[in-house]
Design a protein around this nucleic acid. Structure first.
Lengths: 342, 342
DNA sequence: GTTAGCACTCCTAAAGAGTGAGTGCTAATA
DNA sequence: TATTAGCACTCACTCTTTAGGAGTGCTAAC
């Protein structure tokens, strides 16, 4: 048995109805809903076929049908049509570049959550491949240096270093000049051992400080590399969907959002996928606590190398069209704003 | 009718039993539980009296009794005895001063949540009264200055300033010297208009920059003043208590923890209370969504002026003794660690 | 003052009945 | 041959009923 055009139409109708109501869809509903002008009996026959194909399931005998993961997958891959985009709000919001990326991301997460009624997550850009823009050491108190590192995209990292022995203000000045002239414009990866040795030589008897500065820089960046900052919003939106609101499920989901550890897997998994938008349906997700959810991710890029991931988490019957379109629009807008200047 | 010793004992037994089970407590239970050696009938008479006094209530006719808010209040104020403190873990954890306060607070929130099985909240120290330690301007790119402000306690704020016109490196250096020599050691409050005017005069034709630097500093600090950073942990612990886990209640509570707005009220309310520990039972709390909870807050102080608030949020039948003792211990330890150096 | 005894209340869980949405199958129809 | 009408059947859901039990309040005896 093959999946002919009519079956497709019926499947689509089932999925769309189920998305709205969240309740099993019966044959009579479809018979009236579609422009196919078929009796409920015919629909029933077709539905039996669709079930045999594994695209829909009955929660119990003689109930209506709900889409299976496979059904959703087919819908997302083939049946979904692009709506005209709702750009307005996003556009206004993104109209100008923001100096502090974190702020932008936080607001973006919130905006998306409010707009979609799903939970959202945005990972701060990974440094990987980012250029060092500026390093500054300052003596804060005796034995303590403040190191400020600015990376492309005006991401700022502060670290306080404990240094042994005394350093004069003049020394600090010299070190700053040395560090900046040597390291500026390099990516994190380009700062290799050879360079470090060379730098230490030049630093003379302050080579120890140079060492710990670089260590601290690497450290500050590594911390973010391994557990990048993740902003979340709208976690409580899941309570709007009864199929996710029961005790344990909700608890697990909210926990995932709270300690953000599991979200990392999601980011790691989807960030391989170059640039595109990825949809995880039910069991496809790498995150255990989201087996009953669907997740849509997109990889954004702000400047050169400043890449991160946006994720939208909702019930399996989420409005894929709207979510995918919203994300696509967002990506495009970001592209326009952050690349036109070059 | 007055509250004699025996009634006290019975009330205490009821509350303690209810804390463990979360279910209405019957007369027979108390009759066996206590060392009073009274029959259930006698207990029943006493319980009727306690109910008349408003200290316990029946959820429905002929059910056992549960403590009322007033009952809990009496318990917290008079009946609760100090257990020997469990210092061990806290002590190990706090043994050394940490350079980055934020990190300490984050960990502290988590530790408390895991230990108590309640939700926790810690507000980052308010700047109010804190001394400025260090200001540093750096030219990051043309037209953009990076301002780094360090306040006592090594709290670091970064802001990027857009400046019109060009500034030479030499100018930046001069401004740094000027700003630091004038402002270091002052509290935020001490930087008044007179001082600013004087500073602007000295800055000569860069007075505009000085203005915007100070504005930015004030701004960065004001943002924190108005909506101080709040770290939360263990919000999902509330699912461990059936009386808080139902849909709407849980959703509201978790929401409060997510956007942290409501938590501010709690902090503002309790931070008036100088140093002590405060217990809010049920309706006593200023936060709407916590009417069915109890909240215990404590005000901590790290250095001079670095004050913040810790809050523990749980069900009304929370283990007040343990929570209060844990917080007391924590306060003491912080005191010892952060004040002995002076 | 304390206690045993007993009738009474009211929640809870289980069992049963009725309802309705929806199905699968069969036979008639176009 | 595809479609449809008709009908028996299934099963979740709701309501009601029932029985059980925990716990009470009251009374009378100790």
């Amino acid at each position: 048995m093959e999946l002919d055009d009519r079956k497709m139409k019926i499947l689509k109708a089932i999925i769309q109805t189920y998305m709205e109501t969240g309740e099993p869809v019966g044959s009579r509903t479809i018979s009236k809903y579609t422009d196919l002008n078929l009796s409920s009996a015919t629909i029933r026959n077709e539905m039996a076929d669709l079930e045999e194909l594994g695209l829909i399931v009955q929660p119990y005998t003689s109930a209506g049908r709900i889409p299976s993961d496979k059904g959703y997958r087919l819908y997302v891959d083939n049946l979904m049509e692009e709506k005209e985009r709702e750009v307005s709000e996003m556009k206004n919001f993104l109209i100008q570049r923001v100096d502090r990326v974190e702020l932008l991301l936080k607001q973006m997460a919130k905006l998306l959550a409010v707009n979609t009624n799903y939970a959202t997550m945005i990972s701060a850009p990974r440094y990987h491949g980012n250029k060092l823009k500026f390093i500054q050491l300052s003596k804060v108190e005796e034995g303590k240096l403040l190191a400020v590192v600015v990376v492309e995209g005006n991401i700022i990292k502060n670290t306080i270093l404990n240094v042994e022995g005394t350093i004069s203000d003049e020394d600090v000045l010299q070190l700053n000049i040395l560090l900046n002239s040597t390291l500026n414009g390099l990516t994190i990866d380009e700062i290799n051992l050879g360079l470090i040795t060379k730098l230490k030589e030049k630093a003379g008897y302050h080579s120890g400080v140079v060492g710990s500065v670089l260590e601290a820089v690497a450290d500050a960046i590594k911390v973010d590399e391994e557990q990048p900052q993740i902003y979340t919003s709208g976690a409580t939106n899941i309570f709007k969907y009864p199929e996710l609101s029961d005790g344990t499920r909700a608890s697990n989901l909210i926990s995932a959002f709270e300690d953000k550890h599991e979200l990392l897997e999601l980011i790691n998994d989807s960030s391989d996928e170059e640039h595109g938008i990825q949809v995880y349906i039910g069991n496809e997700t790498p995150v255990q606590s989201m087996k009953d959810c669907s997740v849509v991710t997109a990889n954004y890029e702000l400047g050169d190398g400043m890449k991160g991931t946006i994720g939208i988490i909702g019930p399996k019957r989420m409005d894929y069209e709207r979510v995918v379109n919203t994300l696509k629009t967002l990506m495009e807008q970001l592209d326009i704003i952050y690349h036109k200047k070059e």
